[in-house]
């Protein structure tokens, strides 16, 4: 049987017919509606959709932070219903601990696992080096820029060597140039570690720059609209954004997204009108 774009030969993560509803009775809102896709070992997959389409809900389900859902998110044969050691999460908001230095932030998961001090410092040092912050080990987050702090969070997640790296719009608060350069860093790390990665984003260029496949979501309820394979050459850098092929993918996915984004915008405007009408 031939595989379609939503299936992989050797999936590290399977999202199988996942449904998540919030509220009760007449007020039920379906945030995620029968979503299915998977991520192969070493693959970089992005989930893209307009604001409010249920991306963050999906992130929380895969990360085990939301356990009450229908369907299954599986790692191997195990259904996820709580945070799983195989999944390392990077959050949208800045999440470093301000009272810890960079190295202590990165070594934090190893400290919880009871790894000895010299080993955890060695491992933390390795990942700090990998994200390009070697000269900032003793600095506190307050002394770093937003992009540097997000790199600390990524190093802190990678230090546990998770099977799957799960990121929720990690560059959302950064400017476009920093975002492109951090994209390069992520691509480099992902290729170096052959890291299975699932990125949740609303940024089209970021998704095309980084991904092997992109899952396009519909606006409310969040369903899989289409899965696009990105056949841009690897190793890949941000130089790719100038290529014709890149532009072609961006235009193609935008065609799919435009309708959903327009629905989202219309929905927000009518909600704002209702609020204004009710004073």
């Amino acid at each position: 049987m031939a595989l379609n774009e939503s299936q992989s030969v050797n999936p590290a993560l399977v999202v199988d017919d996942v449904v998540k509803r919030f509220g009760r009775g007449d007020e039920v809102i379906t945030a995620v509606d029968h979503m299915s896709f998977d991520v192969a070992q070493g693959e970089f997959v992005s989930v893209i959709g307009p604001s409010g389409c249920g991306k963050s809900t999906l992130f929380n389900i895969i990360g085990g932070l939301l356990s009450d859902y229908e369907g299954a998110v599986k790692i191997g044969e195990e259904r996820i219903s709580a945070p799983h050691p195989a999944v390392g999460m990077v959050f949208q908001e800045e999440s470093t601990f301000p009272w810890r230095t960079v190295i202590d932030n990165v070594a934090f998961p190893l400290e919880l696992q009871g790894v000895g001090k010299s080993e955890r410092m060695d491992r933390a040092h390795h990942f700090i080096d990998m994200v390009g912050l070697a000269s900032f080990e003793k600095a506190f987050p307050s002394q770093l820029s937003g992009g540097m702090r997000q790199r600390v969070s990524i190093a802190r997640t990678l230090v546990s060597q998770p099977k799957i790296l799960l990121m929720d719009e990690p560059f959302a608060a950064l400017d476009e140039q920093t975002r492109l350069l951090l994209g390069d860093k992520i691509t480099q790390i992902q290729q170096e570690l052959n890291q299975t990665t699932l990125l949740i984003t609303h940024n089209l260029t970021e998704a095309v720059q980084l991904s092997d496949r992109i899952v396009v979501m519909t606006y409310r309820p969040g369903r899989v609209k289409r899965i696009v394979r990105i056949d841009l050459p690897r190793p890949r850098t941000s130089d790719v954004v100038g290529s014709d092929a890149f532009g072609h993918y961006v235009a193609e996915i935008w065609n799919d997204l435009r309708e959903e984004a327009s629905r989202g915008m219309a929905d927000s405007e009518s909600a704002a009108s209702r609020r204004a009408a009710h004073g």
Partner: peptide, 14 residues
């Protein structure tokens, strides 16, 4: 306490 820090703790199964 910022909810994201609590989520970091939850994701690390603290």
């Amino acid at each position: 306490t910022r909810p994201v820090l609590i989520n970091v703790g939850r994701s690390l199964k603290m």
